[in-house]
Amino acid sequence: MDHISFIQNTLDLSVSVKEKSWLLTDGTLVIYHSRGVVEFVPSLDFTSNRAVVLSSGVHGNETSPIELLDTIIEDIQSGKLSLTQPCLFIYGHPAATHQHTRFIDTNLNRLFSGYQTPDDSVVEVALANRLMESVDRFFTKHDAQEKWHLDLHCAIRSSQHYTFAIHPYNRHYKRSDPLLRFLSQSKIEACLFSEAPASTFSWYSAEHHGAHAATVELGKVAKMGENDLTLLADFEKELRHFISHDSHTDNEKVISSVIEYQVTRSIMKHSEQFEFHFPSDLANFTQFNENELLAEDEGVKYRAQRGGESVVFPNAKVENGHRACLLVQKIEN
């Protein structure tokens, strides 16, 4: 990895990966734990009250966050970017990226509810276990005052907000002000507040480690090498600042520019009869008026609730038992 990019190293499935470590010229310790998992620990000259996990590629075809983090990793290794806190970079599902698909057997981002017995017929189960173990080990090793996990994705459809984040429900805090400050400073347009436990990667870190965590959606799916990262320049600039500056300087009060939504409910797919009553290419955050028909499944009709609801992540092709969409309402401040 010290001679080729993190993407190239991770995607070369013909070469086995063994844990190794080395020092950069600025004293930063690099620990290459396993395929797609690399840790950077600044030299002892730095003291930080923050430890940060940055993950991408949990869905294999969501490539812009993978490329964005790869440029950051390269600059850390070359000395162009100096860290002030330990960071764990995770490239989640290289086998799916290889196949230009979202997943191999099942949606990896629905498997982080806790450790499961490996299933030889579902490759994602063992992968989820390994990624949770990586996060557990990192946060146990770096028992910082502030733990962070930004799980970076991109949407499979157009959206009325090009960038947005999902703030997971967890037992530690209802609303993470440090996270919202970061989202605002990085020009993320909107944030969805969930009121129910989930099984996503960001929820796992929030629930089990009290991390300031979010699933961050950065634009739309494109093939590796075809992403226009200039559209994510504000986010990348702030992320670089976030991991390379003293966390004590980030406590100033910021007037948030983030548009906030409350997740009202999820519509689950229960059968192959499931269908939406809107076009398959509907943009995220499209508003439906009260009582408008949204979906139908085995004769059960789902209509927009009082005050109307907006649809996010509609996908009628998900597996039975999985979420077909989120429904949200704007929070009026």
Rank of each mutant, 00 (worst) to 15 (best):
M1D: 07
D297L: 12
I66E: 11
S56G: 02
G307Q: 14
R303D: 09
F138K: 10
S205I: 01
G27W: 07
D2N: 13
A211G: 11
L152Q: 13
E62P: 00
H142M: 14
V123I: 11
V300F: 09
R50P: 00
T163K: 07
T101E: 05
H172K: 12
R137I: 07
E296F: 03
T117R: 15
S247Q: 15
I73F: 07
A155C: 06
L83M: 10
K80E: 08
G60P: 05
D250E: 01
L111S: 05
Y115C: 04
V52L: 15
N251W: 11
A211L: 13
F103H: 15
S64G: 10
V52Q: 12
A233I: 01
Q287T: 02
A324W: 10
N227H: 08
T106I: 03
A51H: 09
L150W: 02
A324E: 06
E39S: 00
G299M: 08
M132K: 12
F278Y: 11
S266G: 08
Y204Q: 01
E67A: 08
F6H: 13
T249F: 15
H241D: 12
Q160K: 15
R175Q: 12
R102N: 10
E62M: 03
I90F: 06
G79N: 03
A196M: 12
K187V: 05
L327R: 07
S244C: 10
F138T: 04
E226M: 13
A128P: 00
V53Q: 03
F89T: 01
V53L: 02
M132R: 07
C325A: 05
Q8A: 15
Q85E: 09
F103I: 14
R102L: 12
I267C: 02
H241I: 07
K18A: 15
H33L: 12
L88C: 04
P314G: 08
I188N: 07
H149T: 04
F278D: 06
Q99G: 00
L239V: 09
F201Y: 03
V58G: 06
F40T: 04
